[in-house]
Simulated scan of single mutants.
Amino acid sequence: MSWYRYDGTNNLVLTLYIQTGAKITEAAGLFGDALKIRLAAVPMEGKANATLIKFLAAQFDVPVGQVRLKQGGKSRHKVIVIHRSMHNPSVLSNIV
């Protein structure tokens, strides 16, 4: 299984594993069937989720409103949907 797929409406669906408290926010390779993302944020009051959404929006060159947390609001394992992304997931996986 891949860490990304496209749904029936051609939205990009990402399966991620999140590590908080890193020095910088970056993609860090595969972690099982998920892409590991290190976040420079703490998992308090939604700060980590907000940082993740902003990071993904910047990487995929879409507005923040097009990045949606589908599953895993309080978990390290998250499913993210990016609506109408024109970029290939390789923008994150250049180290994978």
Score class of each variant (00 low, 15 high):
M1Q: 12
M1N: 13
M1S: 13
M1G: 13
S2Y: 10
W3I: 01
Y4A: 04
R5I: 07
R5W: 00
R5L: 06
Y6P: 03
Y6M: 08
Y6W: 09
Y6F: 13
D7Q: 02
G8I: 00
T9P: 00
T9Q: 15
N11T: 02
L12D: 02
L12W: 01
V13Y: 00
L16K: 04
L16H: 03
Y17Q: 09
Y17P: 04
I18Y: 01
I18A: 02
Q19T: 15
T20Q: 10
G21Y: 01
K23W: 04
I24A: 10
I24N: 12
T25R: 04
T25K: 01
T25P: 03
E26L: 14
A27C: 09
A28L: 02
A28P: 07
G29M: 09
L30V: 05
L30P: 02
G32N: 07
D33E: 14
D33A: 10
A34Q: 13
K36W: 03
K36L: 14
I37Y: 00
R38G: 07
R38C: 10
L39F: 05
A41S: 15
A41W: 01
V42K: 14
V42S: 14
P43F: 05
M44R: 14
M44P: 02
E45K: 11
G46E: 06
G46T: 05
K47R: 14
K47C: 07
A48G: 08
N49P: 09
A50P: 10
T51I: 05
L52W: 00
I53C: 05
K54F: 03
K54R: 13
K54A: 12
A57N: 04
A58H: 12
A58W: 04
F60A: 12
D61M: 06
V62W: 09
V62A: 06
V62P: 03
P63V: 07
P63I: 07
V64D: 07
V64S: 08
V64Y: 00
G65I: 05
Q66P: 00
Q66I: 00
Q66C: 04
L69H: 01
L69M: 04
L69T: 02
K70L: 11
K70Y: 04
Q71N: 09
Q71D: 14
G72T: 01
G72L: 01
G73D: 12
G73C: 01
K74M: 08
K74F: 08
S75Y: 03
R76L: 11
H77Y: 08
K78M: 01
K78P: 00
V79F: 06
I80A: 03
I80W: 02
V81Y: 02
I82G: 01
I82C: 05
H83T: 09
H83A: 09
S85K: 05
M86C: 11
M86S: 13
M86R: 13
H87D: 11
H87L: 15
L92Q: 06
N94V: 07
N94E: 08
I95V: 14
I95P: 01
V96F: 11
